[in-house]
Design a protein around this nucleic acid. Structure first.
Lengths: 200, 200
DNA sequence: TAAGTATGAATGAAAG
DNA sequence: CTTTCATTCATACTTA
């Protein structure tokens, strides 16, 4: 008997959207736990995986949409490729808020992400491989299989190190932005109050 | 309209699951090669990297699931435990094939991994000093547990810092890694299917 | 109801 | 290895 999939209640959706709007992209386990706990006030059947998937999907589709718009823009103004990007996002460092409400979540300094993170492709290189490395062989086609038709993904496990310009903007990791990652979560009460004043 | 990403055929999936169930976790390059070669009988478009990634993901998510279940049982009653992250599959013992094919794989001596493999430092569940990524678990968070040392030993995988990253997997031979060398390699002839001497 | 869409869920691929 | 990204599947919902 497959349980019907979770569907966020309006209140839950508002909270999630607000958190997302505030910059939350990859909530940590504790955050997911607390969010789930809080959202369960509105829907007892919510699970952590729902919150997790919600952020995954929302982020992915937001990015997808952005990518599509960008592509569309670049098709119209091909000459403006580089200038088409908005000005480099200024790191909006918000003052670390030590409020216990999770709705006071402050987005990290590197938010929103630069568009370069959407296409962080680097030219692949070939590398010498040892026959005992299974990872190394991944871009080797087996002999009796022909992949000439499709666009074979040739960049295997080896990538160049030219990544300084896009690595710095990778997102909100637990160990990236100190002001947002090392909160004393053990004593933090993320949902002390009911979510009020949230706008849609 | 090329299919951009490989999707295992049911037969392939059964074979992979069976190998995994038998204890295969980090197949060596030759093993991946043999598996890929064999699975290509069911899907000509399979590549070595597909097999490699399958094991990587399956292992990671299986481990993740184990972690969650363990924490669940240690935190609360497992009475109502249908929530949270789903189990991708349940190990179901199938009739072992005694022919000289893939199913003859014998799992290593250190399999299955006990809980110490997952928590080598006797995790204190309630510790909340550090945030873990939400992808790791959906319901509970564990404190930081460092597997790196053990993983290097156990998997024989190292990382170089040159040119991005690089995976090197040492082949577990009869005289390589002591803790994993008890594998009966003599019966590891996974795919002696081809009657014609291909090579070697 | 069929077609199209929005989105929860899952997983292959890859980055870190 | 862990974590994240991209793609796809599955299904509830919307629309004509």
């Amino acid at each position: 008997m497959p349980r019907p999939r979770w569907s966020p209640a309006p209140q839950q959706l508002m909270i999630l959207q607000d958190l997302y709007r505030k910059g939350m992209r990859n909530p940590t386990s504790s955050q997911v736990q607390k969010i789930t706990d809080h959202l369960s006030l509105y829907d007892g059947k919510i699970q952590c995986k729902n919150v997790f998937y919600w952020f995954q999907n929302h982020k992915a589709r937001d990015r997808q949409k952005l990518r599509k718009e960008l592509l569309h823009k670049m098709q119209k103004n091909p000459s403006d490729d580089d200038d088409d990007f908005p000005a480099p996002h200024q790191p909006q460092i918000t003052t670390p808020n030590n409020s216990s409400n999770i709705l006071d979540y402050n987005f990290p300094a590197n938010f929103p992400p630069n568009l370069h993170t959407l296409y962080p492709h680097s030219p692949s290189i070939l590398a010498e491989g040892k026959d005992t490395s299974s990872a190394q062989m991944m871009n080797n086609n087996i002999e009796n299989v022909d992949f000439s038709k499709q666009c074979v993904i040739e960049n295997g496990m080896i990538r160049t190190s030219v990544q300084g310009w896009f690595l710095m903007m990778t997102d909100i990791g637990p160990n990236s932005i100190p002001c947002c990652s090392n909160r004393p979560l053990g004593t933090l009460e993320l949902f002390p109050i009911k979510a009020t004043g949230i706008k849609e």
